[in-house]
Nucleic acid binder design. Structure first.
Lengths: 188, 188
DNA sequence: CCATATATTGAACATTCGTTCCAAAATTGG
DNA sequence: CCAATTTTGGAACGAATGTTCAATATATGG
């Protein structure tokens, strides 16, 4: 062993996430990043490789945390529909903060396979968790049985982007709540 | 008078739109722009001022054209609900092409007042046109009368972003169509 | 046809970008 | 305490950025 790092990898990654989610990849300079992360340039490059790898690591960590929060809310209520509602309400509550997942999709579309892979994996995981609860809610008679479960789950997941983009565009809390309510309506 | 310009302002602006919608503001270099627009650097700066003003002009033109297309579809059917459906179907059909409106909101949020003003004005105009047709559809008994008309209109407009982001993320035509269908469901 | 005015072209500008080099500092195992 | 190894901080790099300058070309009005 030799000299240990003076910072915690996950902590500085969180700082990088805060920069990227607000300014995007191209809009975030190395200068902004090292300042926010509180480490030197060389430490950044030693630890993460380069700016692109740092970005991928940030997106990776962000979506992992985000999915965990989604799923926690989703499973937090005995009745499936209440779980779905709670998950959407959480998105509404957090919407004022820009979403790195949405931003990364907007900025790069499907032009970077490495990034798409991260996005796809998290989308799949979330979709499965939501679909399970939708199926439950259908069995409960709370969500229309005629609905295709997968389609409904996809719609719920897509609604997250709806709400977040609306917030990024300046929608207030009342409007965001209304969007969540309308999304729930589609499930009846 | 003196020597006239060799290009059409709107034509080269369309070319700039194609670059910006795909790569964003920060992701589009002056080099990429002049190449796509087919004019010299100096002509670009003489005509549009600088990169930021060119971007604003591009967004301005894009949203104006987009709203016109939305409203044309919206009013193209005798029954209000059919107009709403046609408008959503058009968004689904065009979704494979990135939307400059959505991208500009994602990239800048509300950090550039000049840009927000353009976005807000177009959002207001679209909202009013949709709300009118939603009210009609409510009178027809096609859209639930208990729904707040403004909330429903806001939801329809927000659904455009839903569909477009899903497409940017890689959703296929079937999934996009399903999202449009689910959005219509919320209005019943 | 000339004077004027604008457009075009391509080189050049300063600045910022992402990245790397290098010397000094700090920690651990022997 | 020494040797080995890694981290750190800051200067430095070439490349790319957005923008402008200067010279040439091309049109119009008198």
């Amino acid at each position: 062993m030799a000299r240990p790092k003076e910072f915690d990898r996950d902590e500085v990654l969180e700082a990088a996430i805060r920069v990227f989610r607000e300014h995007g990849y191209e809009g975030s300079s190395a200068e902004m990043l090292v300042r926010a992360m509180g480490i030197g340039r060389q430490s950044l490059y030693d630890t993460f490789g380069d700016k692109w790898q740092l970005y991928c690591a940030a997106v990776q960590r962000y979506v992992a945390c985000e999915i965990e929060a989604h799923v926690t809310a989703l499973r937090g209520a005995p009745r499936a529909l209440d779980g779905i509602r709670a998950m959407i309400e959480r998105v509404v509550a957090e919407a004022p903060q820009a979403c790195l997942g949405v931003n990364s999709i907007c900025e790069f579309g499907r032009s970077r396979p490495e990034l798409s892979e991260i996005q796809d994996a998290s989308a799949r995981a979330l979709h499965i968790a939501i679909a399970k609860r939708v199926r439950e809610a259908q069995a409960d008679g709370e969500v229309a049985a005629v609905l295709d479960t997968e389609a409904a789950a996809g719609f719920v997941a897509a609604s997250f982007a709806t709400i977040r983009i609306a917030a990024r565009g300046g929608a207030d809390a009342r409007e965001l709540h209304s969007l969540g309510h309308m999304a729930m309506r589609a499930l009846r």
